[in-house]
Nucleic acid binder design. Sequence first.
DNA 1: CGTGGCCCCTGATTGC
DNA 2: TGCAATCAGGGGCCAC
Length: 298
Amino acid sequence: MPELPEVEVVRLGLAPAVAGARVSGVEVLDARGVRRHAAGPADFERRLTNAVLGEPRRRGKFLWIPLEDGTLALLVHLGMSGQALLRTAEQPPLRHTRVVIGLDTPADGPLALHFVDQRTFGSLALDPLDPARLVPAQVAHIAPDPLEPAFDDRAFVTALRAKRTTVKRALLDQTLVSGIGNIYADEALWGARVHPEQPTATLSASRARRLIEEVREVMLRALAEGGTSFDALYINVNGESGYFSRSLRAYGRHGLPCERCGASLVREAFMNRGSHYCPRCQRRPRATARTGDSAAGA
DNA sequence: CGTGGCCCCTGATTGC
DNA sequence: TGCAATCAGGGGCCAC
């Protein structure tokens, strides 16, 4: 469930320790922890050992640490339950630790980066860095995220309205906009007063703009909370502690009153998960006769 | 080719 | 009380 803000907190937490650090040893305790590394655990261990790490980067929910040689990056995807923990060299692995990467750090001496992942949807990999795009190959297919300077709101609005799907599905489509998961999708839709099942083609341009602004705002708010809740070292370099849950206004609040209008929020099954929304503020669009998709006129 | 649905996985929770 | 079914969901993959 780590989405963009949680992954960014992990990145911020890792940065001071890993930048400039040399990898002193790599131990893959469970091969599933390097599922994304096609060449397998032994190759992963061999090629990462002795590498010098650079400044961690992020796009959407993908995190990567470029190696000093400039051609490869240590790619991290947390999946649903992944954590990247900085621990001392003496601390033993926690339960569900899949990979341990020993580090000689310039500032803090010997440390270890532990990749812990209960449900094993996450994975590490060594991935070639595309010199043109400056992102790892496995990240090349996703769109920029809303917090990148490169993100183009106007282009997003156009692309969103060209889709033939519903708006929540589109928000979760990482090739359209990256970094949004189920939680922040529900939060942004609530904020913009848009029903999750609204067809993208019937969304007005102004409403679509409002929606992406809301996405950004919700993420920045979460980031501001998360950024203050972790300590420099060892600590919650994981973003797991409640997912900044104090700020949630829709997700998981079914049965509770809407903070805007007081109506009882509902939860609906959606894509094998849940959609949480206010049935009064976020009106389900009437079954439209899809003939007029230009804003209101026609 | 775009869209939607399935499945990967494990632990907590729910239900019988 | 104990065991099984259910739920959580990011993203790759595949069928339509």
